[in-house]
Amino acid sequence: MARTYFITGFPGFVSSNLIKKLVDIDHDARFELLVYRDQIQKAYHAIEDMVHYSKITIIEGDITKSELGIDEGTRRRLTEEVTHVFHLAAIYDLAVPEDIAHRVNVNGTRNVLDFILPFSSLKRFIYFSTAYVSGDRSGSIYEDELECGQAFKNYYEETKYEAEVMVHSYMNKLPITIIRPGVVMGHSKTGETAKFDGPYFMMRFLDKFARLPIPYIGGGEALINLVPIDYVVDATTFLAHDETAKSKVFHLTDPEPLTVREVYRLIAQTLVGKTPSYTLPSSFVSKTLSLSLIRKWVQVERETIDYFTLQAYYDSANTIKHLKGTGIVCPRLADYMTHEVDYYKKHRHEPEKLIKVN
């Protein structure tokens, strides 16, 4: 039986790369892509670049609506045909307001879960969570841990946590695999990425001060967990078809992460050719970025600074065990940072790649 993939979150960065990978390895598969109405034209343009795109169907829908806003005839067809569901649609903005985050990340996930319960051919539901459901926890964070009394740095983390708790409650009803990526960067070979957020805020910050002595921000002892998109996609694709990955959680994180200070220095040396020579307290930078005028000029979200002090290590023993022998490993950041910076330098002035900072 040919596989049929139902995927939310297209044409987002991770979903687009995931589909390209699945198309490449599974020529007989069909794809049903749930797309929000204001992304329809972008979605059609995106699939034109894909081989076998004639086997891709775009469905206008909305995860915040009952039955995902899909008509009865399409629902009936999906119920009979879909074998794999990837739920990636979410609000990823660290500065997202609570009501929007809850509506999309929590209610949206509940709607997707309920929508797929009747799927008669379903072999796997792959839910994209985040490593940062750990909130403010410190020390080693394990893949089989979730509800540990943690608090959260923002509504993105909190609502992704609430959504994952809910996904776990469906484990006895659906064949579920949960993916918890770290901070996703561009491709390790090309540097290609869709948006300059996350660690790219460091690059945007350094751009503003390139002609001045470069400061470190805070002590920088915290570990920062960065993973390239190709590792996330390759690992997810394998785990989605691995029978032993059912009912399990996987940290797609760097098993040998660098500290914030090391990453910042690496970016500074690669981007502007300078090594930071003094330190600004992270509290000072955070307070400065609380001023809208400064925040907009630097083009860095204040919430980013919270991750400069997070004392957590994301253990990925379960992931490493399942990927053993596949050749799928997380590359070392120092080995691909040049590609990330080169891509940023070539595309840093393109409006569609910049996250609007308010």
Results as ranks from 00 to 15, higher is better:
146 L>Y: 02
162 E>I: 11
171 M>C: 05
146 L>E: 03
145 E>S: 13
168 H>Q: 12
141 I>H: 02
158 E>R: 15
147 E>L: 06
152 F>M: 03
140 S>M: 05
170 Y>V: 05
161 Y>P: 07
169 S>G: 10
175 P>N: 12
180 R>I: 10
163 A>M: 01
180 R>E: 03
164 E>G: 12
173 K>P: 07
181 P>H: 03
161 Y>K: 04
153 K>F: 15
146 L>G: 01
167 V>S: 06
145 E>G: 06
168 H>E: 09
165 V>R: 15
143 E>F: 04
151 A>L: 11
149 G>T: 05
153 K>R: 15
141 I>M: 06
179 I>V: 08
153 K>Q: 12
162 E>L: 07
173 K>W: 09
179 I>C: 07
144 D>N: 15
163 A>I: 09
154 N>K: 00
163 A>S: 09
172 N>F: 06
181 P>I: 01
147 E>C: 14
158 E>F: 07
142 Y>D: 06
145 E>D: 14
162 E>Y: 04
174 L>K: 04
169 S>M: 05
179 I>G: 00
149 G>M: 01
166 M>W: 01
176 I>C: 07
145 E>F: 07
152 F>P: 01
167 V>N: 08
150 Q>G: 13
178 I>V: 15
166 M>E: 13
159 T>A: 04
158 E>T: 07
159 T>P: 00
147 E>A: 14
179 I>Y: 06
151 A>V: 10
157 E>M: 04
169 S>R: 15
145 E>I: 03
163 A>C: 08
140 S>P: 06
179 I>N: 04
143 E>L: 08
142 Y>K: 10
172 N>V: 03
144 D>W: 12
160 K>A: 08
164 E>P: 08
145 E>R: 06
144 D>M: 00
150 Q>M: 14
146 L>M: 05
145 E>M: 12
175 P>D: 01
181 P>N: 02
166 M>T: 13
165 V>E: 11
154 N>D: 01
151 A>D: 11
177 T>V: 12
151 A>I: 08
147 E>R: 12
154 N>L: 02
158 E>D: 12
170 Y>K: 13
143 E>K: 13
147 E>I: 07
141 I>P: 04
176 I>Y: 09
161 Y>C: 08
151 A>W: 06
164 E>M: 01
165 V>Q: 13
142 Y>R: 14
181 P>A: 00
176 I>S: 05
147 E>S: 15
155 Y>D: 13
151 A>S: 15
172 N>T: 12
151 A>N: 15
141 I>G: 10
169 S>V: 07
170 Y>M: 07
160 K>L: 10
162 E>F: 02
147 E>M: 10
175 P>R: 03
172 N>K: 11
154 N>M: 02
149 G>A: 02
167 V>Q: 03
166 M>G: 01
178 I>S: 03
151 A>M: 13
142 Y>F: 14
140 S>E: 13
177 T>M: 04
174 L>S: 06
158 E>V: 00
150 Q>P: 11
168 H>F: 12
142 Y>H: 14
172 N>Q: 11
143 E>W: 04
170 Y>L: 01
177 T>P: 03
149 G>P: 03
174 L>Y: 06
156 Y>P: 00
178 I>K: 00
145 E>Q: 15
161 Y>W: 11
150 Q>L: 07
168 H>G: 05
162 E>N: 09
172 N>R: 11
161 Y>Q: 02
173 K>G: 08
148 C>W: 04
